[in-house]
């Protein structure tokens, strides 16, 4: 059965919310935040596979890693599309000004650009073609995930509880790799 369909459930929920107008007073803000949240969560789930698969009976989790990574990229791409559509309505000059002027946009875009080659090279044929280089390339997920959490911090005005929570989880996942 196609496991990836489960990954689309949040998107279905969002589509239903738009259709039924249950996304609150500012549906655009909700759509942008929600897609960004899910991009980050799938990314953290991807990073959690390596430690979790070492638990007894969990070795099979590795088969989910590519899916989680692609879902993370997919929601991040949706986040970018929502941003370009609703914040700037394809006004490229305004978009470029935004990227240059607002550090949190710059950093978010940088994270997305780091994830892009990882999504492209996620297929078995690319793995074969890149050989040992593939693993090295895919270490880009570490700086990308740090930038994503930084992007989250820079977006928040004063209440840093949620960015801190995500930073702690990410710190744990990366720290585990460091000490191992």
């Amino acid at each position: 059965m196609a496991r990836w369909l489960i990954g689309l459930l949040p998107l279905v929920w969002l589509g239903f919310g738009v259709w039924q107008n249950t996304l609150g007073a500012n549906p655009v803000e909700r759509m942008i935040r929600y897609s960004g949240d899910w991009g980050l969560w799938w990314l953290l789930a991807t990073l959690a596979i390596a430690p979790l698969r070492r638990l007894p009976g969990c070795a099979g989790l590795i088969r989910l890693r590519r899916l989680f990574g692609l879902l993370g990229f997919g929601y991040a791409a949706l986040h970018v599309v929502f941003f370009i559509t609703f914040e700037h309505f394809f006004s490229w000059s305004a978009l470029f000004r935004d990227i240059l002027k607002r550090p949190f946009i710059t950093i978010g875009l940088l994270a997305f650009l780091l994830l892009l080659p990882l999504a492209v090279t996620s297929t078995p044929s690319w793995m074969r073609r890149l050989g040992p280089q593939w693993g090295r390339l895919h270490r880009l997920v570490y700086p990308a995930s740090v930038l994503v959490v930084l992007h989250y911090f820079l977006m928040v005005k004063a209440d840093y509880r949620l960015p801190i929570l995500h930073a702690v989880i990410l710190g744990g996942l990366l720290g585990w790799r460091g000490v191992r």
Binding site: N26, E29, F86, E87, A94, R102, F104, L154, M155, K157
Partner: peptide, 10 residues
């Protein structure tokens, strides 16, 4: 503003 584009609003 460092986070919000002030030329436009929703």
């Amino acid at each position: 503003h460092p986070r919000w584009e002030q030329r436009q609003e929703r």
